[in-house]
Design a binder for these strands. Structure first.
Lengths: 235, 235
DNA sequence: ACCTGAACACCGTTCAAGT
DNA sequence: ACCTGAACACCGTTCAAGT
């Protein structure tokens, strides 16, 4: 508890200004994120919201990247760790948790990009890791593979959200996708035979279908690829 | 060839200012990137380098993200498409190309983050896609799996570079990694049994070992996971 | 130790006006 | 059509000085 304030009475006409805390800063940042998006969560704006100057924030937060990581951990609290728990096998439940994680990032998409730069290390992140590891353990996946595997699972989910978000956001992103689509459909059969033949497959499928295949594919790969120096492939 | 200039002679004391072109803009951007990093590649700085105002660039480039994508395609020309071609099987050669791609991004790490937001669609990108598809075809991977698979392979490589880059860059990044390391090693055995047991595995391995396993794992997964609505897992 | 005002050194993008 | 000066509306971070 802080000592009783010695501030002069002349401060009386403002509502009691709450003391700055790391928690309060992060909570306010998340509020702005939900209401106006990550672009508006700047040190200056945050300071204004907290009725102080930007310099004051640096007592509690090292820099913008660290702030983003802390915000992500806060949001990780929303992830449903028991998604698809209804009697499916471990793989379905694992995919369910990952899908819940991905959808959370879809809802706050700009944060996904930031998440690749600065991974969170807060309690919600640890809880998520623990849950993923327990599901892999349940499936009998060897510990070394499981440990490296969770990293790749979260990376895939985060990167997918980061990609999808960017496209959904800017009005220019559509044009870029069109450019790729046109390039693939117009691929020269002689110089790029595979692109030419697979254009439809490359661009096909709904985001949901591709995400679902992606998780299944990773789970298969993780379960069947031993850690070790020598390259070992199945079959 | 442009028409002979009608500019008045009074312009004589400057070295002939080259006409703006998209190619020239991207080339200059890459030069600044190599010399000073992506943070210095701003519209204003680029304009100054090209002896014009920032507004002029918007005739050729829609926005900063699009510029980044074009720069990445330029750098993609450096990727060795025949890496590890010395008689290894298709999987080793595939991993070799992906490693070459990843190392290129390690050298220009900030661009990797940007690459997730705006995928390139230039000739070098198409060449890379074509090569990856041909190797998967050589391995007999079914077309639908190969098409979705290349996306995940490039995503994994790009995301890995984006993560690694951020850590290598900021002086604060070390502290963040330490925070995660400490959190994992200090995980409570009762509440987080798997984290506690696997802390060493989670943090272990060299980046090279993990990357190599990652690619092997993906190749296994892609080769053995059929596309389809029903969840199908091996074994 | 914690907090702050002010400053430093910049940004991306738009738009009306020119050629 | 292409190009531009100027403006709009901002940034992150540091630091000396205060309490």
């Amino acid at each position: 508890m802080p000592p009783r304030s010695k501030a002069p009475i002349s401060r009386r006409d403002r509502p009691a200004k709450p003391a700055l805390t790391r928690q309060g800063i992060v909570a306010t940042a998340v509020t702005i994120l939900r209401a106006e998006g990550l672009a508006k969560v700047t040190m200056r704006r945050l300071a204004k919201e907290l009725d102080t100057g930007p310099a004051s924030l640096y007592v509690y937060v090292a820099n913008t990247d660290e702030l983003h990581a802390a915000m992500l951990d806060e949001l990780l609290g929303e992830v449903d760790l028991d998604a698809a728990a209804h009697g499916g096998d471990w793989r379905e439940r694992l995919a369910g948790v990952l899908t819940s994680y991905t959808f959370m990032l879809f809802a706050h998409p700009e944060l996904a990009r930031a998440a690749l730069a600065a991974r969170p290390s807060g309690e919600h992140y640890l809880r998520l890791l623990e849950r993923l590891l327990s599901l892999l353990d349940e499936g009998g996946v060897p510990p070394a593979q499981a440990a490296w595997g969770v990293d790749t699972l979260l990376q895939a989910a985060t990167a997918t959200a980061a990609e999808t978000s960017a496209r959904a956001q800017s009005p220019h992103a559509d044009q870029e996708w069109d450019a790729l689509s046109e390039a693939l459909h117009g691929a020269d059969e002689r110089t790029h035979p595979h692109l030419h033949a697979l254009a439809a497959h490359l661009l096909g499928g709904t985001p949901q279908q591709r995400l679902s295949w992606h998780f299944r594919m990773l789970i298969n790969g993780i379960a069947h690829t031993p850690v070790g120096d020598r390259a070992e492939y199945r079959r």
